[in-house]
Structure formats: structure tokens, C-alpha cells
């Protein structure tokens, strides 16, 4: 699996989700957990992907489904983490 983070966080995150669920397209405000398109492992897979792709560490305080429910909220979470850590 190649992880490319040169593009905007939204693009990187969207592509990971699309690859994971094999969908042709995904709206950046689509709630991926409410709609059942992902399996029970996906929460941790997404977390692991974010940590590796964006060089961040997801902590217990970050655990809030609101952070990860859409491409846009996840991208905002990543930007906040990077801003907080100076990445």
C-alpha cells in the first residue's frame, strides 16, 4: 500500500476510503460510519492510516467519532493535530 500525502488531506483521506470500500466516488460530507459501508475494523484502520500518512499520534483524548465521520471532519482533525504538534 502506497501512501501519498502530497495532495490536500481531503484528497489523501478520500482516496484511502475509496480504496478501502471500493466505491467510485465519495462526497466529503458523507458519514461513512452511519451508513454501514465500512466493517468493524475500519475505525482502527483509518486511525492507523492517519497516523502513518500524516505522522500524527491519535490519543485517547482524540477519540471522538465526530472527528472521523466524514472526509472533511477527518481532514480538519488532521490539520488541527499537525497545527498542535507543529508538523
Amino acid at each position: 500500500m502506497r501512501i501519498d500525502t502530497i495532495s490536500r488531506p481531503q484528497d489523501t483521506i478520500r482516496q484511502f476510503i475509496l480504496d478501502s470500500v471500493n466505491l467510485p466516488d465519495l462526497d466529503d460530507d458523507f458519514d461513512i460510519f452511519e451508513t454501514g459501508i465500512v466493517n468493524s475494523l475500519f475505525a482502527i484502520e483509518l486511525m492507523t492510516f492517519l497516523e502513518k500518512a500524516f505522522n500524527i499520534k491519535v490519543t485517547m483524548d482524540d477519540l471522538d467519532m465526530a472527528n472521523f465521520k466524514t472526509v472533511n471532519t477527518t481532514a480538519q482533525f488532521v490539520l488541527n493535530k499537525q497545527g498542535a504538534s507543529g508538523v
Binding site: 468493524s40 475494523l41 475505525a43 482502527i44 477519540l63 471522538d64 467519532m65
Partner: peptide, 17 residues
């Protein structure tokens, strides 16, 4: 251990892994 409400999604799978 972990945040209430997110234990099944994050905490349990990690140990089971």
C-alpha cells in the same frame, strides 16, 4: 480504559488484534 462509548470501536479490537 478508553473513552466510554468508543471502547468497542477502538479499545477491544486493539487487544483482540
Amino acid at each position: 480504559v478508553g473513552k466510554p462509548g468508543l471502547v468497542i470501536a477502538y479499545v477491544a479490537p486493539y487487544g483482540l488484534h
